[in-house]
Design a protein around this nucleic acid. Structure first.
Length: 493
RNA sequence: GAGUCGUUAGCUCAGGCGGUAGAGCACCGGACUUUUAAUCCGGGUGUCCUGGGUUCGAAUCCCAGACGACUCACCA
């Protein structure tokens, strides 16, 4: 039967239910559960075959399978956490209730039941139903019970169908919530304050990325969706907030693939009087707290075993470029030498690139993909780090790290640049790049410089890509599998 | 943005070297008081993604397009 006919038939059935029984399945507003299905399973696991418990239970869920027989029927009921078999028997329910059940209850409907636990002669822990109420009705057919819903397009577009049909998907998002809670608990223990900063602003800074542009009608103002929370959070440290963090969505107007969604969840932390080494420890603690909350520090990601036991490996960008590209930047002292070396390694070179930029390019090209086990990459060039403090021993480099897991950047941190004069100069440098056509260069944020002029204490900052962390911890191959409603092109009208 | 692959019933999928489409589940009717992918009897429900072309005839071949997945590029 085509879906429209099934829908029409179910609507007709609903009409008859209302007319013939005087029952409106959309009228119930609440149902008190004495136990969830998982709890029932746990508490009555010791019942032996054919043994009935004496305790009266009330529970509720969605009918996922119906095995109707003449005067005794079984259903599979599923709630948010588990599924369980319910037994509907003519003698136990009485003719009126049993007939109502057989006539009106369909797969997909929500039921609230009262009954007692028992174990069937086939050994399945079940609930013998003594009374029930139809709490809500489904008009559309559920996906196939055995194979579930596989069509990825439907899974992402109609996530509710994916979630109701595929319990593994629910587990992933439950784990995501567990991870978030573990991270927040850790942050609270460190005395960090959770804050909210603007998503809409007239300047999109704090990272190098193309923003989404929008318009505020009443103010007659072009506005941007934020690409990072960094600059607002550091203003809070100027304002004596001490330790702050924010977990929220960032928006970047860039490509979509298995590691990128235009809106993604990032966490940023700023601690006064801390440096990037402190952030490294905090970063390890965050990863470990997240891992521990959902199953432990040894994880299998897409068949690869990843050990999240701290301390994670630490290596400078130069060391990694030497290791994986075979280019020794300690021996390179001019930009021209670096260009020759980069060209020799197949990096496109136009001729104006600095050795620092080329170091970063070589790392991206040759280093990143090898960093399967968690690795802190240290000492990024100043040129690609407009907001990080210089390393006093090597002023062309910064006291910064990025954490890579499975070849992807999961975290980025540094000792925050708090010299307003240096910051102003770096903004100018970014502005020059922007004027030269680099759309991802950082905009000049005058108010941020002003804030630094009021005094930013020594500060450590850390950003964590939450979606990617969740991916590794849930063995999800695409970022879309950890974002409830991922970005999709609208279906053709 | 480029390449590869995919799109057939509500779902999971077969099939179709061009002759008007099938299975299982779901669904509808019936039987059945311990089933669990229940079983048994009866019922086949479709814009074969869309548009155009070739052809006596297109779901199948060709072209264009939509959407998706994957790989690559940009990016976190």
């Amino acid at each position: 039967m085509p879906e429209e006919e099934i829908l029409a038939a179910r609507k007709e059935k609903l009409r008859r239910l209302r007319e013939e029984e005087g029952y409106d399945p959309y009228r119930p507003e609440r149902f008190e559960r004495s136990a969830h299905l998982a709890e029932i399973k746990r508490r009555f696991d010791s019942l032996t075959v054919d043994q009935h418990g004496t305790e009266k239970l009330t529970t509720a869920g969605r009918v996922m399978a119906l095995r109707k027989h003449g005067k005794a029927s079984f259903i599979t009921l599923e709630d948010e956490g588990d599924r369980m078999q319910l037994y509907f028997q003519f003698d136990a329910l009485g003719e009126e209730a049993y007939t109502f059940f057989k006539k009106w209850v369909d797969v997909g409907d929500f039921l609230g039941v009262e009954g007692h636990p028992f174990r069937t002669s086939r050994g399945e822990l079940s609930v013998q139903v003594e009374s029930f109420s139809l709490l809500s009705k489904a008009l559309r057919p559920m996906p196939e019970k055995w194979h579930g819903l596989k069509d990825v397009e439907v899974r992402y577009r109609q996530r509710y169908v994916d979630l109701l049909a595929n319990r593994g998907v629910r587990d992933t998002f439950r784990k995501r919530a567990t991870i978030m809670a573990a991270i927040r608990a850790l942050m609270t223990r460190t005395g960090s304050l959770e804050v909210d900063t603007p998503i809409l602003s007239h300047l999109a800074g704090g990272a190098n990325a193309r923003p989404f542009v929008t318009f505020h009608n009443a103010l007659g103002l072009q506005m941007y969706m934020r690409i990072a929370t960094e600059l607002y959070l550091k203003r809070l440290i100027v304002g004596m907030m001490g330790r702050v963090y924010e977990i929220g969505k960032n928006f970047r107007n860039e490509g979509v693939d298995t590691m990128h969604n235009p809106e993604f969840t990032a966490m940023e932390v700023y601690w006064a009087y801390a440096d990037y080494e402190d952030m490294m420890t905090l970063c390890e603690n965050i990863v470990v707290a997240a891992a521990d909350s959902v199953g432990g520090r040894t994880v299998t990601y897409q068949g690869k075993e990843i050990s999240l036991h701290p301390p994670f490996r630490r290596a400078t960008m130069k060391e990694l470029v030497k290791e994986h590209a075979g280019v020794d930047f300690d021996a390179i002292t001019t930009d021209e030498e670096a260009r020759r070396a980069a060209r020799a390694k197949g990096i496109p070179v136009e001729g104006h690139e600095s050795r620092f930029l080329l170091l970063a390019k070589l790392f991206e090209e040759y280093g990143e993909k090898h960093l399967i086990q968690p690795t802190f990459v240290l000492q990024h060039p100043v040129e690609i780090s407009p907001l990080a403090k210089r390393n006093p021993e090597a002023p062309d480099y910064t006291n910064r790290f990025e954490l890579f897991i499975n070849g992807s950047e999961v975290a980025n941190a540094f000792s925050e640049l708090n010299d307003p004069l240096d910051q102003e100069e770096r903004f100018r440098d970014q502005q020059r790049k922007k004027d030269a056509g680099d759309e991802e260069s950082h905009p000049f944020d005058e108010d941020f410089v002003t804030a630094l002029e009021y005094g930013l204490p020594p500060t450590g900052g850390l950003g964590v890509g939450i979606d990617r962390l969740v991916m590794f911890l849930t063995d999800s191959r695409s970022i879309r599998d950890v974002i409830l409603f991922p970005a999709m092109r609208p279906r053709e009208a």
